[in-house]
Computed example of a mutant assay.
Amino acid sequence: MRLDTPLCNFGWPAPDFSLKDPTGQSFRFSEQLGEHGLLLMFICNHCPYVKAIIERLAQDCRTLMAEGIRVLAVMPNDYQRYPADAPAKMEEFAREHDLPFPYLVDQDQSVARAFEAVCTPDFFGFNGEGRLQYRGRLDDARLGDPAGRTPELVNAMRQIAQTGQGPLQQHPSLGCSIKWR
């Protein structure tokens, strides 16, 4: 089912969490939060929306990370019912697309619920204090031709890094519903 994300709840404090990547390495949100902020995104392997943007998403994240903005991705789906999203498949997906950020497993879906994530992809941009400043889309290309696109997520995260505030105008991300247990 196709969904749009809700509007940004500016200033919402991110709840802390700890999740593991498919190899068992733990990552804690509060330890990853840097002075220039953190992009947290909910993605998965099988979603056609994620597949359509993954190459430019990886490149945009490399750009942000080079500028000191931290990035974490969380896979929230019930991978028992959707085996394409299982941890072993996450490792393959990350390798295949050269993902530069940790890709974490939300096995009990508690993190997705705490953040009120609704779809994949779902982007959350936090300032250095862990306050939400962006809940929008990757860019204006959607599933179309990315030539000439406006990199809205990159622009928003740069603004957050510089000012601590996100843009007032944000467009919802579009994606597949999270596959809840």
Score class of each variant (00 low, 15 high):
Glu116Thr: 13
Met75Leu: 13
Gln59Ala: 14
Glu67Gly: 11
Asp140Pro: 09
Tyr134His: 08
Leu64His: 02
Val74Ser: 03
Phe93Lys: 04
Glu67Arg: 10
Asp140Lys: 10
Asp122Gly: 04
Leu138Pro: 00
Asp98His: 14
Asn127Gly: 04
Leu40Val: 15
Cys47Trp: 00
Val111Arg: 03
Gly34Pro: 02
Gly130Cys: 11
Gln109Trp: 10
Tyr82Asp: 06
Thr120Ser: 09
Ala117Ser: 15
Glu31His: 13
Leu99Met: 13
Cys61Gln: 05
Gln80Val: 13
Arg70Lys: 15
Gln59Val: 11
Ala86Tyr: 02
Ala112His: 06
Tyr134Asn: 03
Leu40Met: 09
Pro100Glu: 11
Phe124Arg: 02
Val105Thr: 08
Gly68Pro: 06
Gly128His: 06
Tyr103His: 10
Glu129Lys: 15
Leu72Tyr: 04
Pro100His: 07
Asp140Phe: 09
Arg56Val: 09
Gly136Glu: 01
Gly68Asp: 06
Arg28Cys: 13
Gly130Glu: 01
Asn45Val: 06
Leu132His: 02
Glu91Met: 15
Cys119Glu: 02
Leu104Asn: 04
Arg113Gly: 07
Pro121Ser: 11
Ile54Gln: 04
Cys119Asn: 09
Glu129Tyr: 12
Arg135Met: 10
Gly125Phe: 01
Ile69Thr: 05
Ser30Gln: 11
Asp60Cys: 05
Ala73Asn: 03
Leu138Ser: 05
Leu132Met: 11
Phe126Met: 05
Gln109Ser: 12
Ala86Glu: 08
Arg135Gly: 00
Cys119Ser: 11
Gln107Pro: 09
Asp139Arg: 08
Phe115Asp: 00
Asp106Lys: 06
Asp98Thr: 14
Ala112Trp: 04
Glu96Arg: 15
Gly34Cys: 13
Leu33Asn: 01
Ala73Lys: 00
Pro121Ile: 03
Ile43Tyr: 00
Asp85Ile: 06
Tyr49Gly: 00
Met41Gly: 01
Ala58Arg: 06
Asp85Tyr: 04
Leu38Val: 14
Glu96Gln: 15
Ser110Gln: 15
Ala94Gly: 10
Ala84Gly: 13
Pro48Thr: 07
Glu35Trp: 06
Glu67Tyr: 07
Ala114Pro: 07
Tyr103Cys: 06
